[in-house]
Design a protein around this nucleic acid. Structure first.
Lengths: 244, 244
DNA sequence: CGGCTTGGTTTTGTATACAGAAAACCTGCT
DNA sequence: AGCAGGTTTTCTGTATACAAAACCAAGCCG
């Protein structure tokens, strides 16, 4: 198994200020999101420790947190690996996110202050621009920012943190299962429509909008069961059924 | 601050087989649920380690997990404490649980196999019996078991684990905010009604039933804002706003 | 008398050492 | 060549040591 990802992560290490478990969590999460750390990648504690210049204690805590976030899987006495959510779990994650984000959007409709509305509107524009010029990385960043804004400003904070988690998990599986030929998962009309519903205060319309948006997004993925992509992973020694 | 809880936990330690972080997590969680560990209780790593006969490493991992479960709060460089959810968070937790458990019940309606239906039915009967004879501890156990059965058998496993978490959190706040005079939070008709809806396969009725059940349960709590119960806690040095 | 400082004490953060489990590997046999 | 078994190597689980930060209380100064 190649170890090139070590160099990539190491390269990013020189940027941050103080190294701590939080720093490692963020770095690994970002690397997983952008698929620089593909599913199944082994994450030995000592190797990570050397890369980030800390001891196993810190790495250990970081890995535990990443496991709680469903980013890596930790089996006792086994090396931690980047998780590869199954097709079924992918569908379930999307369904859960539809439920939660729909509710958050409904709660939020009509309650956003002017500043926040402006921030969302800006992101929507920037996303369209980025897509127009073919800058997919920037587009994803803006798209994620829109949904994270909903989560962070949810009147119900408990639902808000649940949504934050679900946004991360869906992002991971989108990267994993994006149809090969597809350049981008951009749905031009959805975010503007959501924005107007939020502005108008039509909660149920906002909920429906989120629902359809996520349904469409899921539809863009390649979740055909006969696809061997994941089964292969499982057969090659990847155990990941644990979900207590 | 009295240290009697140490003895109580220590007394239970002699039962289990191998001591590990899982064991500690379960013990502490149970103790919090039954309020033998009241909110705000300090949980120093060395003390727990001595009680369970393990070193700080294991305790540390256990505390991290308990923090992820929202049972304790962990601030950097500060001793872990049993969390005291605010009144606002209590309301939000109930709202989240209504949303999630309602959906799970709706998904589950008509899909339960005979064995599971029988198990739920048994629990419903046992709960009524326990309440009739005034055995509140047993009643709570059966009531919890009913909801946990829903969570464990949720067709959507992602929602299932989310529900498990929410059941724990609501149980904690129920114990915390139960109206002083109230002997029990028993709602005689709710669980039987839910059972029949699940049996009949009427998903929307089951969702409504769950919704009303939890609403009624929340109504039994004392969540009056002027109540100083929690503010006192906060003033006495209890910081717990962190919810990233 | 109140607020601030200043020690000692407690408690966590991090690194490291050693033991045991799992995996990889290599060898010898069929 | 294929496989079995044991050996080595890697990696995690746990305990422990030391450093730094927070806590507490007594004392000092305005």
């Amino acid at each position: 198994m190649s170890t090139t990802w070590q160099d990539e992560v190491a390269a990013e290490t020189r940027a941050g200020g103080r190294i701590s478990d939080r720093f490692i969590v963020d770095k690994v999460r970002a690397a997983v999101l952008t698929q620089r750390l593909p599913p199944g990648t082994r994450l030995p504690e000592v190797a990570l420790g050397e890369i980030f210049g800390v001891s196993r204690s810190v790495v250990r805590k970081a890995l535990t947190r990443l496991a709680a976030d469903h980013v890596v899987s930790q089996q006792p006495n086994q090396v931690a690996r980047v998780r590869a959510p199954s097709i079924e779990e992918t569908r379930e994650t999307f369904a859960a996110r539809r439920l939660v984000e729909g509710e958050v959007a409904a709660l939020l409709a009509g309650r956003l202050d002017a500043e926040l509305l402006r921030e969302v509107a800006t992101r929507v524009e920037r996303e369209a621009e980025a897509h127009a010029r073919g800058d997919e990385a920037a587009r994803i960043e803006h798209s994620l920012a829109i949904h994270h804004l909903l989560a962070e400003h949810s009147p119900n904070r408990v639902l808000g943190v649940m949504l934050t988690d679900l946004i991360l998990r869906t992002s991971i599986v989108i990267a994993l299962y994006k149809r090969a030929g597809l350049a981008s998962c951009y749905l031009a009309e959805d975010h503007p429509a959501l924005l107007s519903h939020l502005r108008d205060g039509d909660g149920e319309a906002a909920r429906r909008c989120i629902h359809e948006h996520l349904q469409a997004l899921e539809g863009l993925l390649d979740l055909s069961t006969r696809e061997t992509r994941i089964d292969l992973m499982a057969i090659l020694g990847q155990r990941e059924g644990a979900m207590p």
